[in-house]
Nucleic acid binder design. Structure first.
Ligand SMILES: [Zn+2]
Length: 262
DNA sequence: TGAAATGTTGTTGC
DNA sequence: TGCAACAACATTTC
């Protein structure tokens, strides 16, 4: 699940459940998800203090301790959060468990163990360390128009590159390109001003709708491509049979009729 | 059984 | 040096 809209939902979830409770205990059940830190580092930073604020940049969720340092979550392909009361309810695939003095628990789950947890002194430091581009939510035209300069890559891999724009994943980019009627292999340097502006507008609308869907429970419209990501499905706009191809080893769905521009 | 699944990183070659 | 492509990472399901 975790692309930008999902991480934004996790941020709101953490914000509404886990702030302003003193941390009593931290248990790292799986060292693999700890990035450049130890269980001891986590305990020293968190135990005895509380989480006071949240932030998000791209697919990273951050929670600031009352002392200043930030706890950082990345969800990989299968990460999620679970907040609950009873210790007997600890979910399967819990990799790190935070226990609060009020008896509540926050579990970081990650079935495939591709997610990561780390610490940083500031949001900016993490963005620098990970070389993240500007966040995809509400990215300005000025900012967006610059990311194409000097690039020749196909538009899909470029939009998925977190160093270019942070937050867009495989499913989101397919949706944006479908709505923009752009072929995913179209090289970005062939896009004219008009197409770039349209791409920027579409990106903003798609991201906004998906955030509302993930955070408010709004329905994703029936005519969105993401409902039809399987072999043999038809284009919800023109009825043509959708095509599946591999781009940089990622499954890519497109409508050969709507997105014919190479 | 091999392939595929929402992701990132390190390496390789240009 | 920067960019683009790809294998590797880990787990589960079909
Ligand atoms: Zn179509």
């Amino acid at each position: 699940m975790p692309e930008l809209p999902d991480v934004e939902a996790f941020r709101q979830y953490l914000y509404s459940t886990s702030l302003h409770s003193t941390v009593a205990h931290v248990e790292a059940r799986d060292d693999l998800v700890l990035e450049d830190i130890s269980q001891e580092d986590l305990r020293e930073t968190l135990v005895g203090t509380e989480l006071a604020d949240t932030a998000r940049h791209g697919k990273w969720l951050l929670a600031q301790t009352a002392y200043g340092p930030w706890l950082c979550f990345h969800f990989g392909m299968t990460g999620e959060l679970a907040y609950f009361g009873e210790a007997t309810d600890i979910p399967e695939h819990t990799r790190v468990l935070f226990v609060f003095e009020n008896g509540m628990h926050l579990a970081y789950l990650c079935q495939r163990r591709l997610g990561r947890i780390t610490l940083t002194e500031s949001v900016e430091e993490l963005v620098r360390r990970k070389e993240l581009g500007p966040d995809a939510r509400d990215i300005s035209w000025e900012c967006f128009s610059e990311v194409f300069s000097g690039r020749t890559a196909p538009v899909k891999p470029l939009l998925m590159d977190q160093k270019v724009i942070a937050g867009l994943g495989n499913i989101l980019v397919d949706e944006i390109l479908f709505r923009s009627r752009l072929h995913p292999e179209r090289s970005v340097h062939t896009l004219g001003e008009e197409q770039r502006r349209d791409l920027h507008d579409t990106l903003g609308r798609i991201v906004a709708v998906l955030i509302r869907a993930r955070t408010q429970g709004d329905e994703v419209p029936d005519n969105w491509l993401l409902h039809y990501r399987s072999e043999g499905e038809q284009c919800p706009r023109c009825g043509a049979q959708l095509k599946r191809m591999s781009i940089n080893s990622r499954a890519t769905y497109l409508c050969p009729r709507c997105q014919s521009q190479r």
